[in-house]
Simulated assay, not measured.
Amino acid sequence: MSDSATAHKPVRVMLWGLPRSLTTVLTKCLSYVDGIYVIHEAFGSVTFTGPENKIKKGGEGLKSFMENAATISDANVEVQCWEDNICTYQWVKDTMEADYPGKEIIFCKDVVTSIPNHLDMIPRGFRHTFIIRHPTKRTFSHLAFKVISSTWKLGWKQNPFQIMADLVKHLKEQGEELFPVIVDADDLQNHPASILRQYCEAVGIPYNDSLLQWEAGDDIIKKNWYVSKTLMLGNTIGNYYGAALSSTKFNPASEPPLTAEIPQVVVRLSEQDMPYYKELYDMRLRP
């Protein structure tokens, strides 16, 4: 048998989500699996910081934020980073499909709103998974980060949950094996052992109960994450990964805030999202 036939192929997993949906917490948790290598929000970086970015079409607050982030000294950035000027859709696809000798799992976490007009750039050989969160919770949390919320001005023709539902449909039409794998954030928080075990078994990641608790801080991402330099520098301004990086476990989920307690923009956006959220929710892993 030839060497190429016996060559080791790592498990490759895509985690698609939306901001403020526990995607980074789940990614941090799985970062403790032996032999894993994490490519963090590469398509999202194309959208926000790469030469093909959509910020040119709107979102001036976010554009200013990213420009400020790019001016921060990178002396303290210890994570393996890529430079923005190379981050195109083709570069991301090639990077995700590349060989990684010695790695057992290539885990790519990304923003689902970055891919709808570039479905031909979806990397081959991946098991695609999704995480969803109740729209009221997600949107309310999103609104708290005023810079991040400027992404609403980027001119998406569909709402975010519709984009996710359409991607699920597209992948099913492509005959995606072992699909769909959809996790609801509340289920993950309230039943972490059951949901995480099912998720790992579905995609080929080794599971053990040690994954239910981890260390606070960013030491693990310094070890095996690959991420945009501007995104990491921007975190020093926006602290958008603060809660995720300081986490040590999946905490029980809270109830959605009452309608009377939240801004009308959250109510309106949540109502638009709910039909697509329910469609995805019905396909989720059950506790």
Rank of each mutant, 00 (worst) to 15 (best):
M1D: 08
M1N: 12
S2Y: 13
A5S: 09
A5T: 09
G17Y: 01
P19W: 12
P19H: 06
R20L: 06
L22F: 14
T23Y: 11
F43P: 02
G58C: 04
E60I: 12
K63Q: 14
S64I: 13
F65C: 11
F65S: 11
M66C: 14
M66E: 14
N68A: 13
A69N: 10
T71D: 09
I72G: 00
D74E: 13
C81T: 14
N85A: 07
Y89F: 15
Y89Q: 08
K93N: 11
K93V: 01
D94K: 03
D94L: 05
T95E: 12
M96D: 08
G102D: 04
G102P: 06
I105P: 02
V112K: 00
T113W: 15
S114L: 08
H118P: 09
H118S: 13
L119A: 03
P123N: 04
F126W: 00
R127K: 15
R127C: 14
R127L: 15
H128I: 10
H128R: 05
F130C: 00
I131F: 12
P135W: 13
T139V: 13
V147Q: 10
S149F: 12
L154E: 10
G155Q: 10
F161T: 00
I163C: 12
I163G: 01
M164T: 01
A165D: 14
E173H: 09
Q174G: 01
E177R: 07
L178Q: 13
V181R: 07
D184S: 03
L188A: 09
N190T: 07
I195N: 05
L196V: 05
L196I: 04
C200V: 03
C200T: 00
V203Y: 10
I205E: 03
I205C: 00
I205R: 04
P206Y: 09
S210P: 07
W214E: 04
W214K: 05
D218M: 07
D219M: 13
S228L: 04
T230F: 15
M232N: 08
T236W: 15
G238F: 06
Y240N: 04
A243L: 07
L245D: 05
T248D: 02
K249E: 11
S254Y: 07
P256D: 10
A260F: 12
P263R: 07
Q272D: 05
E279M: 06
L280S: 01
D282R: 12
M283N: 04
L285F: 13
